[in-house]
Simulated scan of single mutants.
Amino acid sequence: MLEQIPSPCYVLEEQKLLSNLQTLDYVQVQSGAKILVALKGFAFWRSFELLKPYLYGSTASGLYEAKLGYETLGGRESGKEVCVFSPAYKEEEMRELVKIATHIIFNSFSQWQRFKGIIEKANETLIKEGKTPIEVGLRLNPLYSEVSPMIYNPCSPKSRLGIIPSEFEKGVREYGLEGISGLHFHTHCEQDSDVLERTLGHIKAHFESYLSKMKWINLGGGHHITREGYNLPLLISLLKDFRANYRVEVFLEPGEAVGWQCGFLIAEVVDVVQNEGSVAILDVSASAHMPDCLEMPYRPKVTKLSNGVLEEDCGENIAPYTYRLGGNTCLSGDIIGDYSFHTPLKVGDKILFDDMIHYTIVKNTTFNGVPLPSLGVIKQNGDFELLKTFDYSHYKERNG
């Protein structure tokens, strides 16, 4: 079957996605928290029918993600949440968001004051129609995060994300908190629950007097809940205690934990060249198709498919045949990494990059006119289905 999948192609494995969802639902049932899928990390919407029975809705970073979540997972009419946070909104975006959002979170008091009237007017209409009004929240910065590298740290010095404690106190004195029903904290990235435990200490140190005044607290994403070895009992205990102590509803909004280890990117070896070692040039790009390999940096696990035989990589310079896997763009640093195998790579061999469903499709580009990978799924019964392909028209439409 793998040899029949076109290259390049992102492939979702439904059974692995279901396993993640069942783990997330276990956390919900045991802790009482509500989990939303963060579309910034996982937006493979053709799989969202699988998400509906398990998750409470979606969380968006702006208008387009909010519309996608509303259209594919549902909104207040179907009992689902559409939670939106953006560092800054435009008026035309806000007028569209109030039609679909259940929660709107602001990054500053000034943005809240600017759009307060639009939300209040929308809520008047919703209440007249017997519908649940929009909840409003503020994102706060507790000045503590263990995220590394710094490019991913939302609490880095001079961060633009979240209201720092001193500015929050000034805002409360000037505007009060009438109309604010929730607070939002996002300080994690691929981290375990012990980090949440330490972070909660900083949240309480700066904002504890306000927590019990809220209806809900959103503890953001970056909780690596579905990773093997994650401390689920500690997470559940922390969430239960937090809900009980402050009598609030608690949201989590992971994206990566939803799509974690539930699919791969399949590529093809196009050429092998020599320059102080063997360099395999592929029909995929780190820069265009898996940018976390350069940003994080991140070294994905690789499996080689040659003549119907699968072989996992042995690491760097361990097995007899070592190759630098590179992309097909002009960027000299378009390098995925060095990998070694017990058998040689040849043109036409397939390369499977593991764990490539989250933070790939949502971030890919057509840099250099490189084609976007197709989208496919391995169904629960083991069959492969090709969902979408991309051609020249997609590149042209994105450039004018």
Rank of each mutant, 00 (worst) to 15 (best):
S393M: 08
N123A: 05
A267V: 02
S285G: 10
Q111H: 11
E169W: 00
D241L: 01
I164N: 04
A288N: 13
P8D: 10
Y339C: 04
I180K: 01
A33K: 00
T226F: 05
K67M: 12
G179V: 06
L211S: 10
P233A: 11
S148H: 10
P142C: 08
Y10M: 11
G229A: 08
C83R: 04
Q274E: 15
S19A: 14
D292I: 07
H184C: 06
W112F: 13
K388Q: 15
N275Y: 09
G348Y: 07
L252N: 06
E49L: 04
L387I: 15
T125F: 11
L2G: 11
S31M: 07
R173M: 12
F207K: 01
N141E: 06
L238I: 07
E65Y: 05
E146K: 10
Y64E: 14
E91G: 00
H186M: 00
N307R: 13
V258G: 08
L387H: 11
S285Q: 06
E178I: 04
D383A: 13
S148Y: 11
R247E: 14
Q30I: 00
E268I: 02
P297R: 03
T343C: 07
D194G: 01
L310F: 15
L177D: 09
Y246A: 10
K204F: 07
E92Q: 12
G326N: 07
L140E: 00
F341V: 09
G259A: 13
S47C: 14
Y392K: 12
G201P: 02
V362Q: 15
E256I: 01
L352T: 08
A66V: 07
V370W: 00
L294F: 05
N141P: 07
E49H: 12
E14T: 14
I104T: 06
S108G: 13
D271N: 15
Y54W: 03
I318G: 00
P373D: 10
I351N: 06
Y56D: 03
L63I: 09
G400E: 13
N368T: 09
K346Y: 03
T132K: 14
R198D: 13
D349P: 15
E91D: 13
R227V: 08
S340P: 13
G137N: 09
Q22H: 10
V269N: 05
Q4E: 15
K128Q: 15
P154C: 02
I336P: 02
V258T: 13
S237T: 09
H103I: 14
S110R: 10
N153D: 14
V309Y: 10
T102E: 09
D25W: 01
A319I: 08
L252G: 06
N231T: 08
V136D: 01
L331W: 11
L50D: 06
Q22G: 08
G176Q: 04
G201W: 03
L196H: 04
I118C: 06
F353N: 01
D391T: 10
E295A: 12
D194M: 04
V98E: 06
S237P: 02
N381A: 09
V84F: 02
Y175M: 05
S285K: 04
I134K: 04
V250R: 01
G41F: 03
Q4F: 10
N231G: 07
K301H: 14
K204C: 12
G32W: 02
Y321R: 04
F384R: 04
L282A: 09
A257H: 01
K301C: 11
L294C: 03
G162P: 04
A288I: 02
K90H: 11
L345K: 09
A43F: 05
